[in-house]
Nucleic acid binder design. Structure first.
Lengths: 187, 187
DNA sequence: TCAAAACCTAAGCATACGCTTAGGCACATA
DNA sequence: TATGTGCCTAAGCGTATGCTTAGGTTTTGA
């Protein structure tokens, strides 16, 4: 029939994701995406429709990429200890070179805030809700905790992992490990 | 000699600060600043030299604005309880309308990351270091804590307040209060 | 009263943005 | 090998960005 695409969408998407991850949404231009993805603007628009389209797909690619450690958390049966491991895994995940890129979802929430497109925002909310539900599941493995405690601690853990995401951009390893240790001292 | 400025720099700076606070650095344009500050581009450049100049001064204005609650923390003599009060004060401070603007410093770190201009970055670092030293001072008021514990807990508190800043943009009051309560159960 | 200093207005600079499109080029089918 | 589908190149659209500047206006001290 006709010519085939000379690139694999999932491959160029992975590269786009890294760019958004590092620079955020607004600070990533189509020209930058062109260079990083290695394809022309025409191809970008043909495959993803718009810059926002690339971004939405990038969030999904991010989800897939982080699934390695979320799966691990989901399968863990050792309660709080599994969550602690997730914190450590996340820190490793967020790291690149000496400084961290943080979490792409956290970065985006912080950048776009309430003005974000509803489509984007609902994807981010879904992501966060999923992590929290995993925390809840693991907290439930401790039979001593009542429902109220579990909810409170899950909220605290969400707060802590968000903090870790930002902190990883400005603090050193020792400081970050201190934080994790203290988070898990009393829960 | 000559004509006087028809605006007060500190006044227009306050308005610029709020714009940067809400939108971040890159998403705030000179045209937006023009409207918000109520003065012409010429005047902006005459007074502040560049967009970055406005921003650097805005950070200082922010520092001054938050000084009300940092002073309160500095003067407090009730140890951890004083820090907890600071957390609550900060949440109130970061709030506007129903959703929060977070902390301007946190927002900027998260947006610009390591690529930020050294001038901007050193201002942000100074700000964060100051908060941490206030935490350390208050932790020292508890004679039971050794130096190692104080350092570890200060790092944890920094992590938590950063988290609170981001969390305030996406979670409700109950969730945020849960977090604060749990933070102070752990130290 | 008047010249000079410093202001403000508004037009415009070069560049970058997100996005579109004409036209040539490559390739799977026949 | 001819054909026609659909990809890729690259030029360009309108708009927005950060910043500058000519020229008129206001205020000051002599």
């Amino acid at each position: 029939m006709a010519r085939k695409k000379q690139y694999i969408e999932q491959e160029v998407l992975e590269k786009a994701m890294h760019l958004f991850w590092r620079n955020g949404y607004e600070n990533t231009s189509i020209r930058m995406l062109e260079k990083e993805m290695g394809i022309n603007q025409f191809s970008i628009y043909a495959s993803f429709g718009s810059k926002q389209g690339v971004f939405l797909q990038s969030i999904k690619a991010y989800n897939k990429k982080i699934q390695g450690i979320t799966d691990k958390l989901e399968k863990s049966q050792n309660g709080v200890e599994g969550i602690k491991q997730y914190f450590k895994d996340f820190l490793e995940f967020a790291k690149e070179d000496d400084l961290s890129k943080g979490c792409m979802v956290t970065n985006t929430v912080n950048e776009l805030g309430k003005d974000a497109d509803p489509l984007v925002m609902s994807e981010l909310k879904k992501f966060a809700d999923n992590i929290k539900s995993l925390f809840v599941n693991n907290l439930k493995q401790d039979r001593n905790k009542n429902a109220e405690t579990i909810e409170r601690q899950a909220n605290f853990l969400m707060n802590s992992i968000l903090g870790l995401s930002v902190a990883s951009k400005m603090f050193n390893d020792k400081q970050l490990e201190d934080s994790i240790e203290t988070v898990f001292l009393n829960i």
